[in-house]
């Protein structure tokens, strides 16, 4: 039987529907490598384990535990929580890192309640001090930095997607199949799963280096295309305010803010967005903020590095033209 290093950090790697490690895996393993030895757990379809394990190694997992099961695509959260419980029993890690995605939070919650572990959610970074593992949080829309730690034991930490830039070096991992003891806990069943086709070649909002976001000021779904056009000229992802989502201009996966995605890009361009505090909560840690709004008193200007008071339907086409002209 393998023995695991004393400073093991167990990382739950989410798998995409096609079985590869999800995007969040690189940041989680990068964070783990900064505080100990990364040990990945991946729950894979039968037969897909070895491939998934190799991919985890490429992202820096020195050990990979593979739980092969069909249950994870049939039942919500419980199969993954059972695998995590078995893995934690084997590895005895100093901390457990999980993506702060909807599914990740579910597994974290079930696992923490079952094992009575301390939980820290939505960490933007992790560190190790003399007493153990510390989670760093950015709360109230980035207005405060909070550090948390468990009174004792290994903490379960969910890590905000796209928040950790560190990457671990690729290694040849030691791979082991994991025997999972089913808990028998009741779970909801997954009746149907439809993969959403990747709509465009645009970068994904989460973790994007540049974001162009549109609000109610775009006035219609057709006119929201202006946001897409500017995004394409800048090579940016497309974001939106909740008002724009509620009005049906864009799908809600584009919502930035307190109840949407949190982004920290190099550049955030807000078009026709007033800058309500719930919106700012998801974007005010951007390096540079640019805003176009016809209301000179819009709160978005309070945090904008460059603001244009004007009609976005005049300003944005001219901006696109100027930028395109330079490119030629």
């Amino acid at each position: 039987m393998t023995t695991f290093p004393d400073d093991s950090i167990l990382v739950l790697v989410e798998a995409t529907p096609s079985g590869e490690p999800a995007k969040s895996a690189a940041g989680l393993l990068g964070a783990a490598s900064g505080i100990g030895t990364p040990v990945a757990l991946i729950v894979a379809h039968p037969g897909r384990g070895p491939e998934a394990a190799a991919a985890c190694g490429a992202l820096g997992a020195e050990h990979v535990l593979v739980a092969e099961t069909e249950a994870a695509t049939a039942w919500l959260a419980v199969p993954a929580a059972d695998a995590l419980a078995s893995a934690a029993d084997l590895v005895r890690p100093d901390a457990i890192l999980i993506s702060n995605s909807a599914d990740g939070r579910d597994v974290a919650g079930r696992f923490a309640a079952r094992t009575r572990s301390a939980v820290a959610v939505d960490a933007v970074g992790v560190a190790r001090d003399e007493e153990g593992i510390v989670a760093h949080h950015s709360v109230y829309g980035g207005a405060y930095n909070v550090h948390s730690a468990p009174t004792f034991g290994a903490p379960v930490i969910t890590v905000r997607e796209g928040a950790v830039d560190a990457r671990a070096e690729a290694v040849e991992p030691a791979v082991e199949m994991l025997d999972v003891t089913p808990s028998g806990a009741a779970a909801a069943s997954i009746e149907l799963f439809e993969e959403q086709s990747v709509e465009s070649s645009r970068p994904e909002l989460r973790g994007a280096a540049k974001v162009v976001a549109g609000g109610r000021g775009l006035s219609s779904e057709e006119q929201f295309a202006l946001v897409d056009q500017l995004a394409d000229v800048l090579g940016a992802a497309v974001g939106a305010s909740r008002a724009a989502v509620d009005a049906g201009y864009v799908p809600n996966s584009h919502q930035v803010g307190q109840t949407g995605v949190s982004v920290s890009p190099q550049l955030y361009v807000a078009l026709g967005i007033s800058g309500a505090i719930q919106h700012r909560a998801g974007m005010q840690t951007a390096k540079t903020i640019v805003a176009i709004n016809k209301d000179p008193d819009a709160p978005i200007f309070d945090i904008a590095d460059f603001g244009v008071v004007g009609d976005l339907f005049q300003v944005v086409p001219q901006l696109i033209e100027s930028l395109s002209a330079r490119k030629e």
Partner: peptide, 30 residues
């Protein structure tokens, strides 16, 4: 085990930068 806060600090608030009023060349200036 319980999760406890071991430190809290406030980040300096962001301040506003340049604000211009569009006079027909706002897009170019941006």
């Amino acid at each position: 085990p319980r999760s406890i806060m071991i430190s809290v600090s406030e980040k300096p608030p962001r301040s506003a930068g340049t604000k211009i009023v569009d006079e027909g060349d706002g897009g170019k200036k941006l």
